[in-house]
């Protein structure tokens, strides 16, 4: 039991870092209604970019900016494939993801790089500091997203995820909105990748595998636990809280003896169950009226 409690601060810090990524997933999955699989690779692209720049002597903060830019470039490719070449969104994301795998290896020159004794902004070597910085970054990211999705452009993007026909009838190019959303989302994911690489002191080509699932888990846990209500800032915060809960649960089951090899299976089953909650609720609660079905806000 003591071991579990001791692991909570570290899991929380990790949850904050993954929370940035989860916010990126939220932008595409919830606001734009696109399941974007680019993130499984763009997370690593961000991590690799940040790690290599730090090793080349760049300031870790500067490296994070480039990590975000690298992620944005990945989002742009997916956006181009989807909107200009009319490839279905899910396939466009898979194609970018696959291509990025090679690019990520090229960036690093090998399958993983370590950041031993390098300057970093956040590290698991100092958990209290990591918590403070993770928290500040999350607050900043939520503030920026809250502002952006309240602007004219942000409203048009939200409406695009809701009713594309209406948006075109109001004179907005829905293709451009999708591209902006994908770029923004993967920018956040790339940033999170750089952040994560610095935190764990290494980047490796598999660091983003299953990232989309972790992102979805955070979004769903956030909505189920805190409810999709109140204002937009509350909803964004609940996703980060969902991410923290997810990491704590993972730490918990690892402590209980689940082997790391079985982690991905555990994650997949958990998210599959969470995604099916709305359907199951409808099936088994015929008599009482279900609260606004989770995930359908």
């Amino acid at each position: 039991m003591g071991g579990i409690l001791a692991s909570i601060p570290g899991a929380t810090a990790q949850g904050l870092i993954w929370g940035v990524m989860a916010l990126g997933v939220y932008v595409t999955y919830k606001l734009l209604d696109i399941a974007d699989l680019t993130v499984d690779s763009s997370l690593c692209t961000g991590g690799a970019t940040s790690a290599m720049l730090i090793l080349a002597g760049f300031h870790p903060i500067v490296s994070l900016l480039f990590a975000a830019l690298a992620g944005m470039a990945a989002g742009l490719v997916t956006g181009f494939l989807h909107t200009r070449l009319r490839i279905p969104a899910i396939l466009a994301g898979i194609l970018t993801q696959l291509g990025l795998y090679s690019i990520n290896l090229r960036i690093m020159g090998k399958s993983s790089v370590a950041l031993l004794r390098q300057p970093v902004v956040i590290s698991l070597g100092n958990i209290p500091m990591a918590l403070a910085i993770g928290f500040l970054v999350i607050v900043a990211v939520i503030a920026v997203l809250y502002w952006f999705f309240g602007t004219e452009l942000g409203c048009a993007i939200r409406a695009t995820g809701n009713n594309r026909k209406m948006v075109r009838a109001q004179g907005v190019n829905t293709d451009s909105m999708k591209i902006i959303g994908l770029v923004l989302s993967n920018g956040l994911v790339g940033f999170a990748g750089g952040f994560l690489a610095q935190y764990q002191g290494s980047a490796n080509v598999n660091m983003g595998r299953g990232a989309i699932v972790i992102g979805l888990a955070s979004v769903i846990i956030g909505e189920v636990v805190f409810g999709a209500r109140f204002n937009f800032a509350y909803q964004l915060s609940s996703i980060v809280a969902g991410s923290v809960i997810y990491q704590i649960v993972i730490a918990f089951v690892l402590q209980l003896g689940l082997s790391t090899e079985d982690m991905k299976l555990f994650s997949a089953v958990t998210v599959a169950l969470a995604l099916s909650i709305p359907t199951l609720q409808k099936k088994f609660t015929k008599t009482k009226i279900a609260p606004v079905a989770a995930g359908k806000e």
């Binding site: 004219e152 409203c155 809701n162 004179g171």
Partner: peptide, 30 residues
């Protein structure tokens, strides 16, 4: 269902329509 965005508020929908034919930037949406 086609003419409005169901997940957005009445005023947000009107604000979308109010900007028909105009450029949309980073000004506040309403």
């Amino acid at each position: 269902m086609m003419g409005t965005a169901g997940n957005m508020g009445i005023e947000e929908n009107l604000a979308m329509a109010y900007r028909r034919g105009k450029s949309r930037g980073l000004r506040w949406g309403i």
